[in-house]
Design a protein around this nucleic acid. Structure first.
Lengths: 343, 343
DNA sequence: CTGTTAGCGCCTTCAA
DNA sequence: TTGAAGGCGCTAACAG
C-alpha cells in the first residue's frame, strides 16, 4: 500500500508535486515530470487514502439515503436511479435502514445518522420516519444538508421532492370511469401518511363531484403490505354489495387484493378490476399485470440528488431550499377492464 | 461541529484525556473528570470525525457488498440479512453495483472497488461478475479481505459461502415425482454459471437415474429474467409434446413461465406445474404462489459476514480462508400439483 | 514549475 | 491519573 510519499521518493520529487499532478488535471508542469509521476503511480498501483483525503477536504463524496427499510420494494426502486445519478457526479451512496438503528426514537435516529460519513441526506417518506418537523429543521439549521423524498417541509432549509398524488388518482379514476365503472372501492393507508392521505381524499372528492356512490363499507384501510391488502379485500368481498373496481393506495396492497379475489373465485379483471399506485418494478410482471400509477422514480430520485448536491456544493454558505413536484403517469395493464353488463 | 479539542478546553483537561475517556470504556480515572467530560461532550453534541478516526486506526468499520446490480431481486434479498449481521457487530455496509462502474473489465472494476472506504468485500455471484480467479487471488494476496457468496475459489485466501444446489434440485425432483410427474422440462441458465450449471446437471442425472424421459426439446435456456422465462416457455409450449411440469433454474424465469402459460391458456398448476429456485421474497406472494427452493439467504449472508469479519479482525496477520456450504429447503406452494390423469 | 510547511481530528505511546 | 508530542496520508497556501 503505497502513499503519496513513496511515489514522490521513487520519482525523485516532493510529495506535493505528486499530489498536484494526481489531482489537478490541467496543472502546468514539465511533461516529463508529470508523465513520470503518472507512470510510477500506475505501476505501483497507487490508491489515495480515502480517510486522509476526506479529513483534509472535509467531505466524504457520499450521500446518505435513509428509509425505514431500504430493502422494501418501494425503496429499492428509488435506489436504482439515485445510485445512477450520484455515480454520474462521482458521488457514492450510503444506504441506511432506520429499523436497524434501534428504538431510540427520532432524535436518536438522527443523531446516529449525523455520525455517518456523509455530506448530505435524502430521506424517503420522512413523514413516516421522522414526523417531527421541528427536529428536522433543527438539524438543517445545524448544517445538515437534507432533502425529503415524498414529503414537503415548508419553511426552513429542507429541500423536497414530492409527487402530485391528486393528479395520479385523477388519472386512475378517469381510466376506470372511462371503462364504465361506477362502483369504486378504495384501500386507503391506515397510517394516514401525507401522500397516501391525498390519494384517498382525492378519490372521495372525485366521487362526490361525479355523483358516484360513496360508501364507507367499501373502504378498508391497510398499512400497504400484501398480507393486509389480502385481508382487507377478503372483508370487502364479504359485503352484501360488491364494487366493480378496487383502487389500492399502493401496489403491494393491490397484489394482496388480487390474491384475495382469486381465493374468493372472483376473476380479475373480468369480475373486478384492481388498480394500484406507484408502479413498483414487479407490477408489470405480476399475474395479471397491474394497472397502476407510475410514480416516476427516476425523476423523483434524480431531482432529490440534484437538490442535495446543489446544497453540498454550496459549501459552508447558506443553502436555499428547493421544492420539486413530479407528475405521475397512468400505466394501463391487465388488471383493469370494462365491468360486465350488470346483472 | 466540535472537536475533541473544544471539549478538552471546555472541560479544562487535555485532548488526550478526552479521547481516552470517550473511547476506552473501562479506563481508570477520577470519576469527576470522566463524568465532566462525558457531560460536556453530550451537551455539545460532540460527534467524532469519522475520517480522522479512520485515518488513525487504518480501518473503516465498513464492509463492501458487490453485485452486478444490487437492486435486482436476488441481491436485495441478500442485503437484508447482511445488513442486520453487520449492524450487530457495529459495522456498516457499502452497497456497490458493478454495472455503475463502467465497462473497464474485471481489473478495472476491482481497482475501483479497492479504492473504496471498506475493510473487506463480499462478492455476490462472483463467477458471473469476476470469472477471473487469478485476479481475485492476486488481490487477496495483496491484502484484500474477500468472501465470495455463491461461488467457491479453491486455494488462496478467499473465503466462500456456497449453496448445495444439487441437494436443492433433488428436493424439487422428489417433490414433483412424488406428485406423479414423469415429464419434466427445465429452463437452464444460458450463461452456465457454476451454481446454475449444477442445478441443470443434477436434474439430468436424476432423470437418468430414475429412468425418466430426457428430451432436449424440453430444455430452453434463459438468462434468468422474467422476459426470457416468458419467451422460453412460449417456445416450449409450442412443441408437439408438452411436459407436465417445468422447473426453472431461478424464480424470475419461473414467473415468466407462469405468465406464458396463462397467455397460452394453460392453467397452473392444473395443467402444468411450475417450480422455481431461490425463493426470492415475492415468490410467496406471486399468483399463483411459487413452489421453489429456499436458498436460505439469512444463513448465507450471516456466514459471509462472519467470514469477512473474522478476516478483518485478524488485522495484518495471515487469514485463513473458510468455506461454508448451506443446505437449501423445499417450499411447496400453489404452483405445483399432481398432473391430470393423462389423456 | 516545484519544494517547504502547516495543518485536518484523532489515537497512542511515553513521561511526568 | 494526566499531559505532551508525534504521526496517520493528504491538500493547499506560500515561497522560491
Amino acid at each position: 500500500m503505497y502513499t503519496i510519499l513513496d511515489i514522490a521518493q521513487k520519482a525523485g520529487v516532493s510529495h506535493s508535486t505528486v499530489s498536484r499532478v494526481l489531482n489537478n488535471k490541467f496543472i502546468r508542469c514539465t511533461p516529463q515530470t508529470r508523465e513520470k509521476i503518472l507512470r510510477i503511480a500506475a505501476d505501483n498501483d497507487y490508491r489515495p487514502n480515502t480517510s486522509a483525503r476526506n479529513l483534509k477536504t472535509q467531505s466524504y463524496q457520499t450521500i446518505g439515503f435513509l428509509a425505514y427499510d431500504i430493502t422494501d420494494m418501494f425503496a429499492v426502486d428509488c435506489i436504482r436511479p439515485i445510485e445512477e445519478a450520484l455515480a454520474r457526479r462521482d458521488f457514492q451512496a450510503l444506504w441506511v435502514s432506520a429499523k436497524l438503528h434501534g428504538s431510540g426514537g427520532q432524535p436518536d435516529l438522527l443523531r446516529k445518522v449525523r455520525g455517518l460519513p456523509i455530506d448530505g441526506l435524502i430521506v424517503l417518506e420522512a413523514d413516516n420516519l421522522i414526523p417531527d418537523v421541528e427536529l428536522l429543521k433543527l438539524h438543517a439549521r445545524d448544517g445538515m444538508r437534507l432533502s425529503t423524498l415524498i414529503r414537503m417541509v415548508p419553511g426552513g432549509h429542507i429541500s423536497s421532492v414530492t409527487l402530485d398524488n391528486a393528479h395520479g388518482i385523477r388519472l386512475m379514476m378517469d381510466h376506470l370511469t372511462g371503462l364504465g365503472h361506477r362502483e369504486l372501492a378504495f384501500l386507503p393507508d391506515a397510517r394516514r401518511h401525507q401522500g397516501a392521505k391525498v390519494r384517498f381524499d382525492t378519490y372521495k372528492a372525485l366521487l362526490r363531484r361525479r355523483k358516484l356512490p360513496l360508501r364507507e363499507e367499501w373502504w378498508e384501510p391497510t398499512e400497504g403490505t400484501i398480507e393486509e391488502g389480502y385481508a382487507a379485500t377478503k372483508r370487502l368481498l364479504g359485503r352484501k354489495h360488491r364494487p366493480t373496481a378496487i383502487i389500492a393506495f399502493n401496489d403491494l396492497a393491490a397484489f394482496g387484493c388480487i390474491r384475495a379475489c382469486k381465493d374468493e373465485n372472483v376473476s380479475v379483471p373480468e369480475e373486478i378490476s384492481v388498480a394500484g399506485f406507484d408502479d413498483i418494478s414487479i407490477a408489470a410482471h405480476y399475474n395479471p399485470s397491474l394497472t397502476t400509477i407510475s410514480s416516476n422514480y427516476s425523476l423523483l430520485a434524480k431531482s432529490a440528488v440534484d437538490q442535495i448536491l446543489a446544497m453540498v456544493e454550496r459549501r459552508g454558505g447558506l443553502f436555499e431550499a428547493d421544492h420539486v413536484v413530479v407528475k405521475p403517469e397512468l400505466r394501463v395493464r391487465e388488471s383493469t377492464a370494462s365491468p360486465r353488463r350488470s346483472t
